[in-house]
Design a protein around this nucleic acid. Sequence first.
DNA 1: TTTTTTTAGTGAATTTATTCACAGATAATA
DNA 2: TATTATCTGTGAATAAATTCACTAAAAAAA
Lengths: 207, 207
Amino acid sequence: MDLSNNTIERICKIFGHLDALEKRGVDFVSSKELAGEIGATEYTIRKDISLLGGPGYTRKGYEVKSFKKELGEKFLLTKRRKACIVGLGRLGTALLDYENFQEDGFEIVAGFDCSVNKIERIRTSIDVFAVSRLEEIVEARDIELGIVAVPAESAQEVVDLLTKAGVKGILNFSPVKVNIPTHIVHLDMDFTNALRFIAARFIMKKT
Amino acid sequence: MDLSNNTIERICKIFGHLDALEKRGVDFVSSKELAGEIGATEYTIRKDISLLGGPGYTRKGYEVKSFKKELGEKFLLTKRRKACIVGLGRLGTALLDYENFQEDGFEIVAGFDCSVNKIERIRTSIDVFAVSRLEEIVEARDIELGIVAVPAESAQEVVDLLTKAGVKGILNFSPVKVNIPTHIVHLDMDFTNALRFIAARFIMKKT
DNA sequence: TTTTTTTAGTGAATTTATTCACAGATAATA
DNA sequence: TATTATCTGTGAATAAATTCACTAAAAAAA
Ligand SMILES: NC(=O)c1ccc[n+]([C@@H]2O[C@H](COP(=O)([O-])OP(=O)(O)OC[C@H]3O[C@@H](n4cnc5c(N)ncnc54)[C@H](O)[C@@H]3O)[C@@H](O)[C@H]2O)c1
Ligand SMILES: NC(=O)c1ccc[n+]([C@@H]2O[C@H](COP(=O)([O-])OP(=O)(O)OC[C@H]3O[C@@H](n4cnc5c(N)ncnc54)[C@H](O)[C@@H]3O)[C@@H](O)[C@H]2O)c1
């Protein structure tokens, strides 16, 4: 299948919202409600969903449980995925113990840092290693995702390591553009850019 | 002016890249190079820039220094903006001491938490307060941006407080959809969703 | 000096994304 | 039971975003 990034992003949000609804014991949800929740129109949502063929029911909407299951299967979002965090500084250690990842199907199974001191001092239930063992551990533990939380100047180096180790996706928190081979899916989370975006919209706002 | 979100986002990235180039002492940059750096085509970049009327020079490109200055002025990105962080847990404290914000023109001038214990224990150069003083401090210090790093269940409450206090923008790190009045610019940073997006693209990728 | 190459700027063409409009279905209501 | 209101699904229309194609300018090379 061949969905646009916009559609994939919305689908992910829908999945998250279905999860919340399921936990709240809600049985059905309409495209209108989903739209409000994820910031889109009901038309767009229905188009998105129609691409996946999910069945909706007249005057009821979509059945939360089965729809979530369907999305989970189609996108393999129910498959538990293993991830590692590289760089166990302030941000990295916060991420290491972020329980939501676990709940949402992402298992942080290893942390890496170049500082042996740091590794010894960290108190966490997750295994932490010297970054020199990254390749070995990523392979041994079938890690698919790498989360980069090292300083900007080390980011490329770490990305290269992760690439070599064979991860399939990278989430980059360092505020630099890193070179990542196209066969690896990646996303940058740049907080400064987020603040700039907000500030720029103070002035230039389109609705 | 009335720019699309896509354009604004690219402009912010361009601004960031110009900043990096300036620090590296580079004088000119072409649309092609910018395009490669921020993940767009040279055509799109030129269209974006043409909307702002920035002058480019034949066979040289854009003059880094003056172009950055121009963008900074047009979008008020050079204006230093004051921000506060609400919720000084693992993520909040990491953000509190993130020096890049400072460098990039965002000044974290206050932190808030509901736990008095926590406030007393925190070691940072930034002033921290009980959340009950939020409104007072936001007004007194002219804080324009609120960064939300409290647990999901407190997010709406904190957003309401920030709204009441009169911030102009909110960056939300809690993984829930909060209700924010339309006159406030806001952006959600949902890490789980980011990982889901990456995972979904393992399967459904469009280029 | 002349030619070639590189680059911006921009209207037109194309592609992509969103929204509309309405048929079909069914639950709720009268 | 008949009617009304609500919801999906989808082709058509519209809108938006991107890409193309070409002009003009000027630096570099010949
Ligand atoms: N702190 C924040 O709130 C924050 C916010 C946004 C972005 N970031 C970005 O996230 C990254 C980490 O920020 P931080 O504040 O946690 O930094 P930090 O300095 O606290 O931690 C960085 C860690 O990376 C380790 N490291 C350095 N080079 C390494 C390498 N080659 N291999 C493995 N480990 C290595 C260091 O030993 C250190 O433990 C930075 O790129 C920063 O710009 C941080
Ligand atoms: N830890 C992470 O790496 C991470 C990653 C992504 C998202 N998040 C999100 O960021 C938020 C914070 O995460 P965390 O791990 O730092 O949590 P945390 O529990 O470590 O910290 C939350 C802090 O918020 C404070 N707080 C609670 N209610 C408050 C209120 N009404 N007003 C002011 N302060 C209040 C608490 O006292 C605590 O200090 C959560 O919503 C979490 O889902 C965290």
